[in-house]
Amino acid sequence: MLHTVNKSPFEKSSVTSCLRLAKNGSGILFLEDAVFAALQGTSVSDVVAGRAKDFQFYVLGPDLAARGLSEKPVIDGVEVIDYEGFVDLVEEHDAVHSWL
């Protein structure tokens, strides 16, 4: 399963709910305002980094860039992808769960 999350972890619980309920081994893509969850040095970095062994994390680069965050370091294990990479992830996983 590929999970996508689009909410800021500082505003909504989508990121923590996804981390609680996604099955280990899943892919999790942060896009839109959820890209903040992929960054080092935030109040939620440890929460995400602590699950890097359970999930493969991805973050949508164009959404980071739009928010002026392209140069900020992402958490170890988070892969930065573009929209074509997003399409590839959808193809590689058997279903997609969007945490709206």
Partner: peptide, 13 residues
């Protein structure tokens, strides 16, 4: 619930 949700073909939210 995690196991149940992972076993689905189409997830609508």
């Amino acid at each position: 619930l995690s196991d149940l949700m992972d076993a689905q073909d189409v997830v609508i939210t």
